[in-house]
Design a protein around this nucleic acid. Sequence first.
DNA 1: ACCTGAACACCGTTCAAGT
DNA 2: ACCTGAACACCGTTCAAGT
Lengths: 251, 251
Amino acid sequence: MTPPKLLDEAALKERELQIINSAVLLIQKNGIENLTMDKVVAQVPFSKGTVYKHFIGKEDLLLAISNLAIKLLSELFSKAFIFQGCTRERMLLVNFSYLIYAILHPALFQTCICAKAPNVLGKSSAERIQEQEQLETKLMGAIFGIFEEAIANKSLVMPEYMDMQQLCFATWSMAYGTISLLSSEVEQCSGRTNLVVERELFNQSNLLFDGLQWQPLTKDKMHCSELKVALEQVFPSEIQQLKEKGRELKF
Amino acid sequence: MTPPKLLDEAALKERELQIINSAVLLIQKNGIENLTMDKVVAQVPFSKGTVYKHFIGKEDLLLAISNLAIKLLSELFSKAFIFQGCTRERMLLVNFSYLIYAILHPALFQTCICAKAPNVLGKSSAERIQEQEQLETKLMGAIFGIFEEAIANKSLVMPEYMDMQQLCFATWSMAYGTISLLSSEVEQCSGRTNLVVERELFNQSNLLFDGLQWQPLTKDKMHCSELKVALEQVFPSEIQQLKEKGRELKF
DNA sequence: ACCTGAACACCGTTCAAGT
DNA sequence: ACCTGAACACCGTTCAAGT
């Protein structure tokens, strides 16, 4: 004579997270292209129907993973944002937090990229898409904030032919291009080239910032050693995790 | 009593191309994620078995499409390479040929990106992968050549901490990041942002080149109007195609 | 009210049977 | 020698039947 077992919201959230985590483990093991709902169901103590109560389809599950991934990246961005240093140094740290994230969580990084495909967005629930937009806005907040400070303290002059949004996009797309094209290096499965992603990201960030005349210029400051010290200070546990992975940053 | 019909190599090539073209049309219509071998077979006057004689699987077919796409892009790069202008202007043209290509052939552009996935390479034939590597080397030749000239005629000084390969990669990844992140704009299906891909590519190219101190600097030369004139001269038919698509470049 | 898993439509790949 | 398409294993999604 127990009362009907009404599921509270917390239990539902808990179950949803369990499904998401199982899926992430499967992506880590087999790659995102080999993820199937059957395999997810097999890893979880619920049936297919229950999984489909949480996610309207496979793509909706992928977007849920991507949203979790963005939250994680946001935390790293925040740490870079509050670093005590000049604005240019802090933006470099943001770029490197993105790199560290891509190396530590390749499955999440890849899922984020895949979740951008029109296919995935087209098959996901409206709420989950809305959540993604909010999370991305928050993520961009760190980049936006640093540029605002830089312009306020005159270390950077906004180019007359650009606005804030374009400035943010320039930084973002540079880091994105570098990291995603070298993600085979990131995952240590290529080795064909002489390119080292952390060195290229360092160079290209500085070329962009120098192009903007963002003070202090590379010739005046901002050497690898300084970046290394800052990274150790801002991301101690992440740097430790990299070491455990046998993937120390090489400059 | 006809002799056994031995297929010559030309006929096989012809048939292979027919399959590839049918697949491209299907990708254009339904998106790459909805391409199936069944649909390809339905578009073509041969059976499943015959299609699988040409391609060891779906991924092999995708890589074949990607290789065709790289050949097409190479032609555009070559036209930019032989333009009569300063080296910096020619590199800007190379970047813009990549953009024009992405707008005119979104299906090919997308297939090229997908073909980079470890999944696709893992399931393709060795010959087709080798062909891809050769085509990419040839493609990079234009970028490499322009940098060589620029350094030879002193309009560019190689940064002491970079080599030729890194320079090429920096250019490539910047254009890649910008164009691929804005490919939703390219395909005119978003419109959420104020970013215009041709303007951002122009800005970011110039920021990178200015960061390299590549002469003449933006403040001295290289305005939108000059680029427009050069594009009309080098890519007249492509610009015409853009117009027909209702997608003129906006600066 | 909630969960289950058989059932269905579809997809990639193979290969025995044909010509 | 070459081609065909039925057949198989697998995947995403649904929903009638259970508790």
